[in-house]
């Protein structure tokens, strides 16, 4: 029985070997595989495209707005800046003797029109430096993950600081002006007085912002400090030389305009910078 089955199987194998050999297809050549992939490529592309569009902008997140950012930065930082600003400007108001505004009783060379232009830009640089980013790397990282252009967040914070300092300076200048007018001994040329500190402050702030979004914070502070020192030297020279008030005011006006232009340019720059504001690297990377 067994030999007979073995013979049958052997015979069957022999009979089927040729038809099976013909039925088995040779493996595809590399060229055939490549042409198959090429033929299927449109399908792959369509699948990829549908896959790519699956992630959309978070619908819970609203469009960026400089005004909203300014508001939240203000609510976040107002206590520190109000305390610092009020202390400094209260001191300035008290330092100016309304009966002798151009001859300070503590330091004779410090008068109303030299105190404000010297102190306001300095305070501005100090506040910008201290508040430009969170000191804790973890919070800095969390704050940098925002759908807003990250530099815009930083811009809003710096702008808020500038706005605050300049508003304080404006309020205290007005108080000083009123006190001098009430005392009646001297007349303070108010607009040139305002321009005197506003021009240099905006120039310093504008330069700091302009450099910040191109070369980082360290260089921004260095540049604005250098400009401040240069202005101080020139200012001293102008004090020693007799210049008409209008000439001086024109110079302050030009500085103010340059500062404003730099601020506007920084705003547009801040909207296109991709890299994170003060990420874990601790630097402000620019493209």
């Amino acid at each position: 029985m067994r030999p007979s089955i073995d013979q049958e199987i052997e015979q069957l194998e022999q009979e089927l070997s040729e038809p099976l050999r013909q039925a088995v297809l040779p493996p595809p050549s590399p060229a055939e595989t490549a042409s198959l992939i090429a033929a299927l490529q449109p399908e792959f592309d369509a699948m990829r495209a549908s896959h790519m569009s699956s992630l959309e902008f978070n619908t819970q997140v609203e469009e960026p707005s400089l005004w909203r950012l300014l508001r939240s930065q203000f609510l976040m930082n107002w206590k520190t800046i109000v305390l610092t600003g009020s202390a400094v400007f209260l001191m300035l108001i008290l330092l100016v003797d309304p009966e002798r505004p151009f001859n300070n009783f503590l330091i004779p060379s410090l008068s109303a029109n030299s105190l404000f232009p010297v102190i306001t830009p300095l305070l501005l640089i100090a506040c910008m430096l201290s508040s430009y980013r969170s000191w804790n790397p973890g919070m800095r990282a969390v704050e940098s993950i925002t759908p807003y252009p990250p530099a815009l967040v930083l811009y809003s914070r710096m702008l808020m600081v500038m706005g605050f300092i300049l508003s304080w300076a404006l309020v205290s200048s007005t108080i000083v002006g009123i006190r001098i007018a009430v005392a009646g001994e001297y007349q303070l040329p108010f607009i040139p007085f305002l321009l005197q500190w506003l021009g240099i402050s905006l120039l310093i702030g504008g330069i700091a912002m302009y450099v910040l979004f191109r070369k980082g914070m360290k260089l921004a502070i260095l540049c604005s400090s250098t400009v401040y020192v240069c202005w101080f030297i020139v200012s001293e020279y102008m004090h020693a030389t007799i210049y008409p008030v209008s000439y001086r005011s024109a110079l302050d006006g030009i500085m103010l305009l340059i500062g404003l232009v730099l601020l506007v340019r920084s705003y547009y720059r801040s909207k296109i910078i991709r890299s994170g504001a003060g990420g874990a690297e601790g630097s402000y990377d620019c493209d």
């Binding site: 959309e56 997140v61 973890g138 990282a141 969390v142 925002t146």
Partner: peptide, 19 residues
């Protein structure tokens, strides 16, 4: 797509010190 991605990312660092 950085802004889009950041709108969809949440992160907790290990060394965070909240304000």
């Amino acid at each position: 797509d950085l802004p889009l991605l950041r709108s969809q990312i949440g992160y907790v660092p290990s060394d965070i010190e909240l304000y």
